[in-house]
Simulated scan of single mutants.
Amino acid sequence: MQGTDAKPIRVETAAELDALIDAHDRLLVELFTEGCGACAAMEPVLGVVARETGVPVALVNPRDDPVLIERFDVRSVPTLVRFEDGEAVDRLAEGFVGADRVIEFLR
Rank of each mutant, 00 (worst) to 15 (best):
E43F: 14
A23N: 09
V74L: 03
D73L: 08
E84W: 05
A15T: 14
F105Q: 07
V74N: 03
V45L: 11
P8D: 06
F83C: 02
V97T: 10
P44I: 07
R26Y: 04
F72N: 02
A19K: 13
L31N: 06
F96K: 01
M1K: 10
E104T: 13
G54T: 09
V81R: 00
D90N: 05
T79Q: 00
E104A: 13
T33W: 06
L68T: 02
R101D: 09
V57K: 05
E43I: 13
A93L: 06
A23P: 07
L59N: 08
S76P: 01
R71I: 01
L59V: 03
E30N: 11
L20E: 14
G47R: 07
G47K: 06
A19L: 12
L27Q: 05
V74K: 00
N61P: 01
D85N: 09
L20R: 14
A58F: 06
A50Q: 01
D73S: 05
P62W: 03
G86V: 08
F105R: 04
I21Q: 01
D64I: 13
L80H: 06
V48M: 09
V55D: 02
C39I: 09
E16D: 12
L59R: 03
E87H: 11
P66S: 07
I103K: 15
E87V: 13
F105T: 03
M1W: 08
N61R: 01
D5T: 15
L106F: 04
G35W: 10
A19H: 12
R91D: 04
F32L: 09
C39T: 11
L20A: 14
R75G: 10
L27R: 07
G95Y: 00
E43L: 14
V29N: 03
E52Y: 07
E43G: 10
L31K: 02
I21S: 04
R91G: 02
Q2Y: 12
